[in-house]
């Protein structure tokens, strides 16, 4: 994430004290030095509510992940119920794709499953009906 110039912010309804101890006691044994990004506390779930991920019955935020661009615009979101974890490889792929699109000023779009180095699409009148010529899954 650091290499991609991306800041990670994690959010749960735990207190910042719990975050500290969790990082020190458990996470530091999974990741050398503990996790390096800010762990935010959303006690009461008001932030999660605005992001549509707060479960008021359980009193927790479910797994919601948002990619926010440098203008503060949400480019992608993914929300899972608690028992299934996320796939960081897909997150990284999406970030690279959004960064590529942004670098081209929106002139290029990335087809499904695109990874860096692969062909992109240039939407416009010339491409209509001819995607099959330039891209095959």
């Amino acid at each position: 994430m650091k290499e991609l110039g991306v800041e990670v912010l994690s959010v749960s309804t735990d207190s910042r004290f719990t975050h500290k101890i969790w990082n020190e006691v458990e996470l530091s044994k999974m990741v050398e030095g503990g996790i390096p990004f800010p762990m935010l506390s959303d006690q009461g779930g008001r932030i999660g509510t605005v992001y549509g991920v707060y479960d008021e019955d359980a009193g927790v935020n479910i797994r919601g992940r948002f990619i926010i661009d440098p203008d503060g615009v949400i480019q992608a979101m993914e929300v899972l119920t608690p028992p299934v974890g996320r796939n960081p490889a897909e997150l990284i792929r999406q970030i690279k794709a959004f960064q590529h699109v942004r670098a081209t000023g929106g002139a290029e779009a990335t087809p499904s499953g695109w990874t860096p180095g692969e062909k992109t699409l240039k939407p416009g009148p010339d491409l209509v009906g001819k995607v099959w010529e330039v891209w095959k899954p």
Binding site: M1, L4, G5, V6, E7, V8, L9, S10, V11, S12, T13, D14, T18, H19, W22, E26, D42, G48, Y51, V53, A58, V60, N61, I62, R63, G64, R65, F66, I67, I68, D69, P70, D71, G72, P82, P83, V84, G85, L91, I95, F98, Q99
Partner: peptide, 22 residues
Amino acid sequence: KLSDYRGQWVVLCFYPGDFTFV
């Protein structure tokens, strides 16, 4: 503050709780 990170890409990750399993 989220707005402190303007000018940077941000991944905002919500999760149910510390000391849980997944």
